[in-house]
Design a protein around this nucleic acid. Structure first.
Lengths: 219, 219
DNA sequence: TAATTAATTTAGATTAGTCTAAAAATATTT
DNA sequence: AAATATTTTTAGACTAATCTAAATTAATTA
């Protein structure tokens, strides 16, 4: 079994690789983990010893198949727990992350498969992120940031990029939620801000910064 | 916040105090924790520094009010999680303990109060043990081991003393469960073994060893 | 390409929790 | 009450994870 700490490193590396980067730098990991580069180097050696990552001094790291499987298992657990907290225990979407960070390390195959069943095998979590299945398979959405759509496009919100509580609270307050239908009523040339219509009812102005953090697909 | 390890020590001390002993010995704790006396001494010093236990060298330990509160919080979480696993996720009563040992350390007040609500505020867990409320208050049952009842007594099973998987599996296989009505049909003088009737239907012979581990109240 | 800057690794310490072996205190026996 | 046995504590060491400061390697710039 991997320690909580190892699991967190693997998850961080997975997410850094996922978002572009081919080989991940020590500094990038240190930043994501809120720790120091020296600590990361120490841990990388241990993970390499366990064949969880490919690591050569100064050359950055990537996950081995074994490491990726481990990372995906943690991510699966995290996202299922988030779903459980929202669906069954009335947590709000900005409240689930911290608790799921703890629950994701609970070691019980039966527990997670039963939670999965209890939730009726969801494919996406409350933030629109895909939930890997038992084998680590992910069902990808072909959504993109609403900042990339153009005037008069009608789209459905499928997820967010920024998962911070403050961003999620802002969306709540603005009446934006997963599954909402959005029409791009106008795009301001100058700053790329948007005027949108939510569910054919209310209208809202959002900055380009916000638009870049909301994911959607064409209906 | 107390560490997982500290929480486990506090829980162990609570249980040893609960079952008789006034001041708990280092060795007793070591045995319960499956560790060495030297390790226990080290930890006792730390717990005493944090005012969680009363500790004087060579004199044994007891919990301070603060330590007892902490222990009861862990026990509350453990028992609520056991209940959740059985009621909602179809775990059997011999499967819940190990997972609950992990879940009891998750740190989130909202999580545990929501689980409590979700289960409709149960007062006893799947083994018949009382679940402390938010303030650490426990609703005691006045039950005793069925080995202490006499011929023709009719009682209801309310709990077990031994919580091991093997004992619980034996009870399952014998058709004994919490809430069952039991009639003491006969007591064998020689070895104090019992002949009982379960729910007015089947009969069963049980040894005194087993009888001492089944708790019940008169109907 | 040499010099400078930035990133990474090493060296050496620290903390929490654990251990073994030895010393000290307490309990039990005779 | 002295001798013996048991329990508990101390001393010193180990591991995992972390840190700071110094050294090394790689990348950038002049």
């Amino acid at each position: 079994m991997n320690s909580f700490t190892s699991e967190n490193y693997l998850k961080a590396i997975y997410k850094l690789v996922e978002h572009g980067n081919d080989a991940v730098s020590t500094n990038a990991i240190a930043q994501k983990m809120s720790t120091k580069a020296a600590s990361v180097t120490d841990m990388l050696k241990k993970l390499a010893d366990k064949k969880l990552i490919n690591y050569q001094k100064y050359q950055g790291v990537s996950l081995t198949p074994k490491g990726e499987k481990a990372a995906l298992t943690v991510i699966r657990k995290h996202r299922l727990w988030e779903m459980f907290l929202m669906e069954k225990l009335d947590f709000k979407w900005d409240e689930v992350h911290d608790v799921a960070e703890q629950l994701e390390h609970i070691d019980s195959e039966k527990l997670i498969s039963q939670i999965d069943k209890f939730l009726n095998y969801p494919k996406f979590d409350p933030h629109g992120d895909p939930i890997p299945d038992m084998n680590g398979k992910i069902q990808q959405q072909k959504s993109k940031a609403i900042s990339k759509y153009k005037k008069n496009d009608i789209v459905k919100i499928t997820g967010v990029v920024d998962h911070s509580a403050s961003f999620l609270q802002y969306l709540d307050k603005s009446g934006l939620a997963l599954g909402n239908e959005i029409k791009i009523k106008d795009v301001v040339e100058f700053d790329r801000s948007l005027h949108i219509v939510i569910n054919k009812r209310s209208t809202l102005f959002i900055s380009n910064d916000v638009a870049k953090n909301i994911l959607a697909i064409t209906k």
